[in-house]
Design a protein around this nucleic acid. Structure first.
Lengths: 210, 210
DNA sequence: AGCGCCATCCCCTTTTTTAGGGTAAAAATT
DNA sequence: AATTTTTACCCTAAAAAAGGGGATGGCGCT
């Protein structure tokens, strides 16, 4: 007998073994219920809105529309559902695209069964479950390069430039003269060996100077 | 008797109860050893390099130099050490500053003792341990706004502008005419109700349109 | 079939910004 | 005391931005 508190889970996963393995695992856990399991987005699209899952486990590598590209469409069909991505690969670009598209968590398929269950629980409690390496990659994406050749002021000014502000406006907001800003920019260009705003921003971002 | 595999842990935490509680907990766990415990960065600065910890638990709210501002200095003293932040608050700005300064993980102080231990283990294995809400905040920071008034092309062009590229260069890279780029920008400005590049970028970023 | 939205392109003008060169003195750090 | 950082000034020409106007085909939805 299912109660109010039972967490409703759906799956979209093309590998039958994995799909049925997860379905069995989750379905046999107290407090969790598998309301549907599909093998592709196209299969799921027609009926998943009626299934009304609380949590959806979504494979990244799906035949037809990939899990990542399916995400925005699934978010429209299921605005309240927490979507957890499942993958065998840990590709940085995919991870950030998925998170940008609204994924609430990201798990590798070698995740142990009890961690899958606790990830589902965690996401219902407002958490953002991630596998260890993925969490590290996400954290690393924030990390600045300590080997930057730019001084503090130069970094600050380049950051302002990267927001699209003019030199004049930067000067006003930092309470320094326009000429000072120009000097800093000259030095930045020399240090980064570039000759334009765009190249300076690109180099600085690629190297995590800003 | 300590073996090669023993994980060396240091603490910097001003609250005596918490500091000694953690020290006791970690010191009495098989495979972990507390090599030092300080009550401020200033206290730690002189000697911590000799302690040679594998993992440092660092309080965010520290008397004197805050944990976040101490991070870059500690990274210089301890280039190989994984630094885990501890905090009572979950302030978004602090979290991102800490991650930018090289923190390897971020835990709230209400974290259970066994999760502290597993976080230390996880960071040694290349993971990035975070408390649930913090992980969610980090993930949310990537999420785009689906309610953007901008079309796909407009979004693409505004993203290019935010990298500092000129309209001419954007036109070349997207294989469209300069006039087309100008038209899109006009529409972007109207939709966002702004009159400059900088304001468009700011509005778009604030609203996660880009 | 028609409407609206989207992406594309064309013309005009004026103001603002950028990038390059050289020089040098406070101010802060080490 | 020495070095780095931050600040400021002068000069010039090219490039870019912002604002205005209008026009055309294509695509999706009703």
């Amino acid at each position: 007998m299912s109660r109010d508190l039972t967490i409703r889970v759906s799956l979209i996963e093309d590998d039958e073994t994995i799909r049925e393995g997860y379905a069995y695992l989750i379905g046999n856990t107290e407090g969790y219920k598998v309301v549907s399991a599909y093998r592709s987005f196209e299969d799921a699209a027609r009926r998943i809105a009626q299934d009304d899952p609380d949590v959806l486990l979504l494979d990244v590598e799906l035949p037809g529309l990939s899990g990542i590209d399916a995400l925005p469409k699934l978010k429209k069909l299921l605005p309240e559902t927490h979507i957890l991505m499942l993958t065998v690969y840990e590709h940085e670009q995919q991870i950030f695209r998925a998170l940008g598209n609204g994924a609430a968590g990201y798990l590798t398929k070698n995740t142990s069964h009890d961690k899958i269950i606790s990830a589902i629980h965690e996401v219902m409690e407002g958490g953002g479950p991630m596998s260890a390496h993925i969490a590290r990659m996400v954290i690393s994406s924030f990390k600045r390069n300590e080997q930057s050749p730019l001084t503090r002021r130069e970094t600050e000014i380049l950051e302002q430039i990267a927001t699209g502000k003019s030199r004049k406006r930067i000067a006003e907001e930092l309470f320094i003269d326009l000429e000072t800003v120009k000097s800093h920019i000259k030095n930045i260009y020399h240090k980064l060996n570039v000759h334009s705003k765009a190249d300076a921003i690109k180099t600085a971002k690629d190297n995590k100077f800003i």
